[in-house]
């Protein structure tokens, strides 16, 4: 008991070391949140382009570009993408690591979110599109009022899962000098030479975040579904 107290004191209280964790948590959440927004926005666009091509044969060139994008992003490790953005593209250091992290993880996430949305769109029965069109809605209106709301509902669990995955994936942000939660724990470890305590605390924080979020997502999903039965 005494030993535990001492370990906590050494790793958290002494020299205000807990601030490494709170600062890190803040950056982790910042990156995850804004990357998710980029991921959903861009992913949605890509999904609409790709499924429009699949269904109507239009937007062929744009769809081809999207396909290449997805292949490259999903075929290479996110750490490499992150480093390319930080060391090759945004070389000027007016761009903070957090900013570069948001861009890199956002563009990465978009590729996965796009495929999630696309499978959601393609899972909607063709009759829904026909019913919308036969009432006089054009293609875009039918997508907006009829197809997308259903597709979104269908893919909500997968989207939430993607958010959780992203939250954990940002733990490599330390590679580009971002002091995220993982890096924060690591700094403490290098100061105190105690590996167990800071790493377990960091792991616990990730776990709590993902559990709380999954629980919240489950509630939202249930209340959306309730309407339909």
């Amino acid at each position: 008991m005494e030993a535990l107290k001492e370990a906590l004191y050494l790793n958290l209280i002494k020299d205000d070391r807990w601030q490494y964790l709170t600062e890190g948590l803040k950056n982790t959440l910042l990156i995850t949140l804004f990357a998710t927004l980029i991921g959903i926005g861009l992913g949605l666009l890509i999904a609409i382009v790709r499924s429009t091509y699949d269904k109507t044969g239009r937007l062929k060139i744009l769809s081809g570009i999207c396909k290449v994008y997805l292949t490259v992003i999903r075929g290479t490790p996110v750490v490499i993408q992150l480093m390319i953005f930080y060391y090759c593209i945004f070389t000027s250091r007016i761009f903070s690591g957090v900013f570069v992290g948001i861009i890199a993880f956002g563009l990465n996430s978009a590729a996965y979110v796009a495929e999630i949305f696309r499978s959601g769109i393609m899972s909607i029965d063709e009759g829904q599109m026909e019913a919308g069109r036969s009432l006089g809605f054009n293609y875009v209106q039918t997508m907006r009022y009829i197809i997308m709301p259903q597709a979104f509902k269908n893919v909500l669990p997968a989207l939430c899962n993607e958010f959780v995955v992203l939250l954990k994936e940002t733990s490599v942000a330390g590679y580009v000098a971002v002091q995220d939660l993982t890096k924060g724990g690591d700094i403490i470890r290098s100061r105190t030479y105690d590996a167990w305590t800071p790493l377990l605390i960091v792991a616990a924080i990730y776990l709590i975040l993902t559990m709380v979020f999954s629980h919240f997502a489950g509630n939202v999903e249930r209340s959306l579904r309730k309407n339909e039965r």
């Binding site: 029965d125 009759g127 829904q128 026909e130 019913a131 069109r133 036969s134 009432l135 006089g136 009829i146 709301p149 259903q150 509902k153 309407n227 339909e228």
Partner: peptide
Amino acid sequence: QLRRKMGMVFQQFNLFPH
């Protein structure tokens, strides 16, 4: 515009489930 003037009823109903 044309389709607004032509109602269509399908074998599978195609109501909007949401």
